[in-house]
Amino acid sequence: MTRLLQLFRLGVVRQFLSWSGAWWFVVALAAGQILPPLIGLAVWRTVFPGSAQVSTYYLALLFTVATTASYENHTFSQGIYKGTLADELVKPQPVIMLPLSENVAVRAWIGLVAVPVIVLVGAMLTVPFEPGALLVALPFWLGAGLLRFLFTWCLAMTAFWSERVHAITAFGTTTLYLLGGNAVPINLLPSFWGDLARLLPFYSMLGLPADAAAGQAVQAGTAAIVQIGWLVLLGLAARTLWLRGLRRFTAVGG
């Protein structure tokens, strides 16, 4: 276990340093993550002028979106397409170390770019946060990070079967944008759609930690069961996709 943790830490450090060479690209990626919530904030503040709830929610959402960003369709899938995944298969460590460590490293970079923007927006809006609410939001945020990684990794692994991994991932990210609470806070959806959205994995990936941090009424027990349920399901899906996909993988020259 200690060996795996050390390998993971080394992987994160290596990827973090490797991505430092593409810092302009990181800035562009960070902007891609934080712009949609900023647009949402502008729209919903126009609908509900002066609403502290809207501002608090979107500020928490900004943080969640930026710190749970996942790009396995750009990183892991390219390894499948180019055949470089073969290098990872012969290393004496679980292959998940590669996408997981790169995911954490990219998130760290995006967080570094996004947090100053979030602080600036927060200072402009003078948004109140309750420490108790932030404490409740913490486990949901950790779950959201893991869930978003598993979701994107599952979509990225469709590269074993299809050449259109970006189109497939675009479906996922667009659905996440719509039903995750980014385009519209789930509390503002018509009640049927709101109830349905809370049961889907997308809310657990974005809106749930943001709602909890904003101090909005969240049924913590039910929300935790839904989030853990989706974590187990997507974990199993990822395992199945990996085992089946690996059988199809022939690598360069295979």
């Binding site: 609908v47 299809s162 479906f171």
Partner: peptide, 30 residues
């Protein structure tokens, strides 16, 4: 390629469908 064709068509419309649904959700409130 038929499968790629289906994904490309679907990708081209989903963004606009989302924009439309978001706008309708906004006008559900105002």
């Amino acid at each position: 390629h038929r499968v790629n064709f289906v994904f490309d068509v679907a990708q081209s419309v989903i963004g606009i469908v989302t924009a439309l649904l978001t706008t309708l959700a906004v006008y559900h409130q105002t």
